[in-house]
Amino acid sequence: MSLDAHLVVRRPAFDLDLALTAAPGEVVALLGPNGAGKTTALRALAGLAPLSAGFVRLDGTDVRALPTELRPIGMVFQDYLLFPHLSAVDNVAFGLRCHGARKGAARDQARDWLSRVGLSGCEAKRPGELSGGQAQRVALARALAVRPRLLLLDEPLAALDAHTRLEVRSQLRGHLADFGGVAVLVTHDPLDAMVLADRLVVIESGRSVQEGPPAQVARHPRTDFVARLVGLNLYRGFASGHTVALDPGITLDAAESLDGPVFLTFPPAAVALFRSRPDGTPRNLWRTRISMIERHGDRIRVHLDDPLAVAADVTAAAVAELGLIEDSQVWAAVKATETHAYPA
């Protein structure tokens, strides 16, 4: 099963235009900020949101004209939407019954699916009696039970607490690996996307801004949104060899030698701060201003602006020793070996 879709949804205040392809067995994650159009894209694939233009081809057949119930899909909703009046087993059996299975056979298969997601013994429970993690797995079993060729998951882990999320994420990963069709996953959590997906499609304002394997996207972000997600400082610049000229008139040396427009990244931890100009003439050194200081895990994140907006991670001890305070002037330095450039 392969997916080849061009989703165009035009609304008064919103415009989605997204080309999406996936090979058989591939798990694609749509990653993006709230309101970027991820869920709309998923709903368009399901036929729940009408396309203004474009197509949805599954194995080469356009299903655009098919209503939702005739598409070979399964969908896991953000808050699961388990039917509150049906038991867990009847929720899973619902789709099988709709596909023509008899009541007894549908129940047997549903029980089988529940045991596959590790929920034997919960068959008779109503959705209200299930924990968040259990409900998520019932929703997954319900979607998989109809043997879809396209599995759609809308923020499948967003409603779970941190501990459950860890457990359910690894289980979901196993189920997705076993699933033979195409899976499209919507998330705003980079970790979910990195762990679950074979390929990321980053969406901002209804457009794809970056695509690729998770590792590559994490290493080479191309928008501020992605850079923030993966925790990197990102700049556009113009490279001549190892030297990259950035917009505000600063030049930094990068590990790579390139020519032409480039992106330049370095992690916040690669930035060193000094009260006064350090001895010697290290490259990648500039004088700057501290705009904000905040806790960031066990480190302290120092935000620098003017001339270059930079996030720097330092230890609490360094903050005390250097007497770093907001609105004061410092010197910042980045090692060239941790500064990476790649073509824009």
Binding site: L48, E69, F77, C98
Partner: peptide, 9 residues
């Protein structure tokens, strides 16, 4: 909508 994705008319 959830019912429709499960194939319900």
């Amino acid at each position: 909508e959830a019912a429709a994705t499960l194939g319900a008319s």
